[in-house]
Design a protein around this nucleic acid. Sequence first.
DNA 1: GCACATAGCTGACTGAAAGTCAATGACCGC
DNA 2: GCGGTCATTGACTTTCAGTCAGCTATGTGC
Lengths: 209, 209
Amino acid sequence: MNKRQLEAQETRKKIYETGCRLIEERGFQNVSVEDITKACGVAKGTFYVYFKRKEEIIFECCENWFGEVDRMARSRKGTLAEKLTVYFKGFMEGVTCGGLELCRQWVREVIDPKDVPGDMCGGKYAYDLRHLRNFFKDAVKEGMLRKNAPIEELVRLFLCQLYGMMACWCMSDAEFTPEDWVERFAKLQLNALLKPYLTEEGVKNGGNL
Amino acid sequence: MNKRQLEAQETRKKIYETGCRLIEERGFQNVSVEDITKACGVAKGTFYVYFKRKEEIIFECCENWFGEVDRMARSRKGTLAEKLTVYFKGFMEGVTCGGLELCRQWVREVIDPKDVPGDMCGGKYAYDLRHLRNFFKDAVKEGMLRKNAPIEELVRLFLCQLYGMMACWCMSDAEFTPEDWVERFAKLQLNALLKPYLTEEGVKNGGNL
DNA sequence: GCACATAGCTGACTGAAAGTCAATGACCGC
DNA sequence: GCGGTCATTGACTTTCAGTCAGCTATGTGC
């Protein structure tokens, strides 16, 4: 990689990081592309060299966040319930530790998918659906969930909980910690959703959160 | 009311109804104020005589929707669980019968409350919090819920379910009916949340959905 | 019936911000 | 050192929300 390419990479990184920071500080709607470029000393046009649209910077941010949480949950040893707890806690940690705007953007995308360009992340709702779908598929492969487990329905019901929690968190002026949310998750007895589909192995490994 | 006032009332109604229709047809972001005013044959400025901001037209629409559902749920005779079912089914009917944009706007407001002007509906998240809070308070008054029932927590947990369901509905390309949602609601065993707080009277009247 | 007041409406205007693109000049390979 | 390329630039276009001074219809007092 020559000097030119290194500098370009640096420029992109600068825009991405400054953008994320400003958006998180002021809110997506209250930061213009020029705010971002001025803050890192480049011209407005440069932004559009690296990002097709203003939104793309936050799409990328969400993608990184989801990917990170997914890796955490998968690398964790334990029962399905424990892994799911990591999943939820990871999301809520991302959200509650300076990720309010990320969370908002995520909800925006979910409620208004046409705002997400088709060439981002392989299609609409791809962030969450893809990861969670694979998560449940793996659980079937590993013999924790029965083969007839309705993957799509499980994905939907879990996301339903996750969306609801995030919306509530936004609503509650961010007064809860990730731990509070895990407790809520358990309280809502989501494991009841899984039970009908657990294998003997899955039950033995503990289905309760 | 003289001719002038009647005509003004008519103008406002025309803008409100045309606006709601266009927004529902094309999506909030894809309808400009001029689209609305042109479609009903008035000047752009007239819009701003009756609505402070573009958003206000959809705020009003949401307010009407929530009010209507609340009236339905309250007028229904039956157990707390039955009333809540009416509540949820009513919301989901509003959403699933041509209310996609309403639903989206609602979620937008919840995740981004600073976008809702403080003078609308008495404050942020007022639509849903107010109605549901009063609903639970009445249940205490009527002796169905115990006096120590944590109203705010119940409101939050129920809204959590509602938001999650709505987000999922937006996500699922509107493939579910309100009945599907009521079934999901029961499935999620929300009644488990209520049980600890039900009075003997409340239990006798049936706590299960 | 006339004159004045004003409610209701108008549409040109302003400002802000997203997104474009031809021009520029620093760097690279030869 | 030279021609070409690639990252960068910033003036420009477009779109749209929101404003406001002015106009006209209607209502009111005489």
